[in-house]
Design a protein around this nucleic acid. Structure first.
Lengths: 208, 208
DNA sequence: AGGCTAGTGACAGCGACTGACAGTTGACAA
DNA sequence: TTGTCAACTGTCAGTCGCTGTCACTAGCCT
């Protein structure tokens, strides 16, 4: 049971988050000031910083939720699965149920639009990549444990995860700059690109 | 022939760069203010910003030089080489002649120490990754042209480059957190990790 | 020698962020 | 119901990265 104080806090946080994403996606991240966000919700700037460590944290708040779900999905994969298969399936699963889980916080459409803003804002892109690296580190440890190898002496877990992450970045880029900004579209792209990694590495694409 | 004015400019720039890297690597990037750097060279803060677009640009100034050399090396590779081979060789070549080329600007040791600082400073790591992505985009276009495919319709150039970049990141991480911070060490690691990508992807490392 | 202009310093200002302090409001017990 | 405590908030002042402006100095060129 949620107390009144907790309800108020949650509402303030969600209002700030929604206002922030709305402003970021419409007028741009850099051109949006924290004062503006606070004003839109009618709280002081100081209060914004009590809910979010910074502007950046607000921009990635929803992403954090879905990333946590992805990590949980990887951990829940059957242990006999090959590493790359486990990652692939967990990722696809994540996008399957995305609508319901995001909608609890903000409209899904806002979440999807935010991806585009992240891709086109250098500061956010940089933060996104740094966050991806952190997630990959966690994934590497999970994979290493699944396979019973030591993540620090055996480079293969980190290599596998880095390759997977690389493909994901190419996928995201293609998706977020394209026309079809739907979960179904990124699912299809992901599957297709993962299938093509092998042939991309062997080279001689020209087929002369 | 260099005029007096040009000489003065170059000396100011180099002095600022050296002071910045020295401060970054010893007391940390975040704990170093631009005022401090300017003061160390005895110029105004405003002047610092006339030589570098920001604190970050100073931190990556030398890296930019070596990255340009790497890109040039890729372009100079024989056209019949397979894409991944070309990238691999260009990268190894870059580290071969690193000492002479860096030493023109700053002591090599400072350059190598800066790598460690980048790896351990979240803001710099994020910037480094964003810069890597930009380089990978250029590399993808170079490879696509070499192989005669269209970089926008065929995902393989970007996939190959993303995989290579992923392996490079794992390599850099291992190298910059290890004991042996020498060009020879990263050369050896690079070769070793590139050899292991294939087996990392096929999974079943446990050998149960 | 004298004009032109690149380079500089000094100053003011913006935006992200932080610390300190005081006021307000919900939670909980007497 | 009331009083106490803790949580939450607003206000204010200050730091730091970064930018625009303007006047001034010093190298360049005729």
């Amino acid at each position: 049971m949620e107390t009144l104080r907790e309800r108020k806090k949650r509402r303030t946080r969600e209002a700030l988050l929604r206002a922030a994403l709305e402003l970021f996606t419409t007028q741009g991240y850099e051109r949006t000031t924290v004062d503006e966000i606070a004003e839109a919700v009618d709280v002081s700037q100081r209060t914004f910083f009590r809910y979010f460590a910074g502007k950046e944290e607000a921009a990635f708040a929803v992403q954090t939720m879905t990333e946590d779900r992805f990590l949980a999905a990887v951990r829940a994969r059957p242990p006999h699965e090959a590493p790359m298969t486990a990652l692939r399936q967990a990722f696809l699963e994540g996008w399957d149920a995305i609508r319901e889980h995001v909608e609890e916080a903000v409209p899904v459409e806002l979440y999807l639009r935010m991806y585009r803003t992240i891709g086109s804002t250098p500061a956010l892109l940089a933060a996104h990549l740094r966050r991806s690296v952190a997630i990959e580190e966690t994934m590497a440890r999970v994979l290493a444990e699944r396979e019973g190898v030591d993540v620090d002496s055996d480079p293969r877990p980190r290599l596998a995860v880095a390759v997977f992450g690389g493909v994901m970045r190419v996928t995201e880029r293609q998706w977020s700059t394209g026309d079809d900004l739907s979960p179904e579209a990124i699912r299809a792209l992901t599957a297709s690109y993962l299938d093509q990694v092998g042939s991309a590495l062997t080279g001689n694409w020209g087929g002369d």
